[in-house]
Amino acid sequence: MYQKSPTKEWTSNVVRYKKFSGSWAWLLHRITGLGLTVYVLVHINTLASLQEGPEAFNAKMQVFMQPHWVFAAWILFGLVIYHTLNGIRIVIIDFGKGAKYHKQLLYGAVAIGLIVFLWMGYIMFFGHDEHDFLSRAVSFFS
């Protein structure tokens, strides 16, 4: 039988609950996950302009190449990199022996994530060089 939960008490319990690193990792994983799910839907909807032909698509993409949209994409990348690295941590905890060193895994994930996040920011804002090694590697495979 369903009973209405006392929402006020539930909220204060959650807020007051002493959160260690694992709780924050869990909470952030959910928040980033929800954000990314909404983004996937928006993203698929935006790409529907591919069906309207080159002019419509290129016009839409010009909008997203404006600096504040590039900044938004960078923040989005931050959500992706956290969710990805913490997701790998979860898999190591669930399938390996990560439960024994889950805190170290989180610190490692945050450290690697910050480095990749800053590197991606550099690429998105300044790294538009067609001739560096990764661009050439990508053109070779695509």
């Binding site: 290129n58 990508v138 695509s142």
Partner: peptide, 28 residues
């Protein structure tokens, strides 16, 4: 877990292909 593991690989490729320079992901 399985879909997550596969997505890790696909999303790394996606970001390199689409965002390494703005032309790659934003030109028809």
């Amino acid at each position: 877990r399985i879909s997550g593991i596969v997505l890790v690989f696909v999303i790394v490729g996606h970001f390199i292909l689409m965002h390494y320079n703005p032309e790659m992901g934003h030109s028809f």
